[in-house]
Design a protein around this nucleic acid. Sequence first.
DNA 1: ATAACGTACAACCAAATGGTTGTACGTTGT
DNA 2: ACAACGTACAACCATTTGGTTGTACGTTAT
Lengths: 120, 120
Amino acid sequence: MSEIDEDRADAWFHALADRTRRDILRRVLAGEHSVSSLAQSYDMSFAAVQKHVAVLERAGLLTKRRQGREALASGDVEAVRSVGAMLTELEALWRGRISRMDELFATEPTRHTDPTHETD
Amino acid sequence: MSEIDEDRADAWFHALADRTRRDILRRVLAGEHSVSSLAQSYDMSFAAVQKHVAVLERAGLLTKRRQGREALASGDVEAVRSVGAMLTELEALWRGRISRMDELFATEPTRHTDPTHETD
DNA sequence: ATAACGTACAACCAAATGGTTGTACGTTGT
DNA sequence: ACAACGTACAACCATTTGGTTGTACGTTAT
């Protein structure tokens, strides 16, 4: 895992580790929203919401396009899939553990016929 | 999404938002490790690693069992899958956006034969 | 018995986080 | 022209975070 990948993963998971940001991401994945229309949904200042959007943008989880005075935010489903792929890699490590246990079961049984424990 | 679910998601993503913790999780998903053996892998104090393990444990991403004086940590693949499932739900919102766009394409074409733009 | 080991946790510290208000600046509507 | 709107960002503040050292306590080995 390269240093740059770890940086991206840090940004992804940090961005997702806040419920307001997860909620914003849900909305912008479902459709484009201006920053101010998003801000109206939450009981906090416009600036706070704008910062949350900026965190999601820096993490690459959403993109903004300018239309007149509005900034329209849109979720990037490919980035979400990349995060999912990281978790799948973690699962693969776990599957590796299991197959190593299988190996163990495949080699261990010879012990059962260990001549030093011969009984007949 | 219930309040308790959001709390769990906060804990999951926060736990994953640190590269040392992700690395620890990789190791304990691949196989059981004592806290001190984990600590030897990192250039920080035992206490720091012990706290990282505690964060992962509180998030439910790993479990510990006591064996003598050692605490053996093991990754919980089901929890990892639950995090993945959250992301899949996010993707579903995006697919919803697409199908709403399909609806739009399905109704819009009548405009093309709008009598006010009749040319012949 | 006692030294060494493995763990847990408290107290502390610098840096980052999530919020606030205020300011500046381009865009839109009257 | 000018007021209102939408955005961005700086400065500030309380809390949390990720690290440290030190202490305490049960377990293992000599």
